[in-house]
Design a binder for these strands. Sequence first.
DNA 1: ATGTGC
Length: 502
Amino acid sequence: MTSREFDGIRLEKLREHVWEIPREGDMNVPARVLASEDLLEEIGEDDTLRQLRNATHLPGMVEPALCMPDGHQGYGFPVGGVGAIDARTGCISPGAVGYDINCGVRMVRTSLAYDDVRGREEELVDALFEAIPSGLGGGGVIDGDADAIDGALERGVEWAVEEGYGIESDLAQCEDEGRRPDARPEYVSQKAKDRGRNQLGSLGSGNHFLEVQRVTDVFRDEVADAYGLSEGQVVVLIHCGSRGLGHQTCNDYLRRIEREHADLLESLPDKELAAAPAGSELAEEYYGAMGACINFAWVNRQLITHRTREVFGDVFDADPIDDLEMELLYDVAHNIAKKETHEVGVGPDGLPAVGDEAVDRADRELYVHRKGATRAFPADHEEVPEAYRSVGQPVIIPGSMGAGSYVLRGGSESMSVSFGSTAHGAGRLMSRTQAKQEFWGGDVQDDLESEQAIYVKAQSGATVAEEAPGVYKDVDEVVRVSDELGIGDTVARTFPVCNIKG
DNA sequence: ATGTGC
């Protein structure tokens, strides 16, 4: 059997693109990396594998802990990590969701062709940059008051559409229809709400962006038809999260775990994996608060969508819905934990079990943690919107601002291989600090414009350097692995036209 | 990711 070892961590190749870290010591389950040999070499260079192995110590983890092909090291739990944990006997881990709760991405279609936009890129990028708040700190599309925050946290996109910031179809074309039914705004602290109030409709910083793109390739005609995508079409990608509100909420609950569940914390190999035991008051409150932050992030992307439609309407002197057909393709969460029912191995006592200890398989309710991973439910799954039910849910995978992005559809193998999940992006190759040593923001922008006709406008040159195309892995290779594993199948590829950043 | 550290 082929095997590879990185810094004392050995992986056995089970089959093409599937590498297992065998269970040993206090690991509850094995761990698996879904990657080609080339991607595995990159994943093995940072702390990802050790973090993935540590994650298997979380109580109640069922089946192997997973790392998607774009995985890299994160806070405690790797980015690109998927961890399914028994919701009755296990735990829920804020560290396995991430600071930016429901950081995610949506794609908006248009009826414009690249030729309609060509030559007007700078006018468009200037108008978008002017209209859409970005960067660190406050300022949003709307000035939120207490009612707005409560509406957003409780009801998500439903609230935004009622307030006039969207159209009816925006609801159906969003994961969970833009509203977590189990959101509990009362478990979000006043401090977090105060931070979110003036950030409703703002991109933020880091890897967040709004990008106008053109469809360059269609790989599966019948799926692209169902998604309303065709070659040459202009689309808009919006990538952002829950800003200070989600960050504050993650922090609030990490502190409470330290105070109220120090025993569980002590038992973990890395304190950053902090988790609350299933059934505890804290677990319930975090789950409800996280659901509210998820709704906030959806409202954030909805308000940016609203403003984007207005900008396109102005620039192209047309009605954004009736003429430009700016409908939402889909909105997917990249950082989330949700109760989902999946089939898992169970022992004689009926509890989830792995390897030889499993005597049967049965449906169990799990906290599926996806941290830097996308839900990728296949055709016929009841949670796929009706318009896409026969082909599978759209999966949106942003690459870098120099490489473009992909639209996939949930693959037929995703439920059995990855708890209905696939990759979420290209994955970082180097730290932000290293990126700033390697690149200069202004040079990156000049090169993109002169060599690829891509127009980037950003609040901070440092952010452009941190997000330079060269700091990312090869997104083509990431989606090739997803496609070959059958967890997410390529549908279309896009290429950047212009991009605004924090 | 983030009022760019507690």
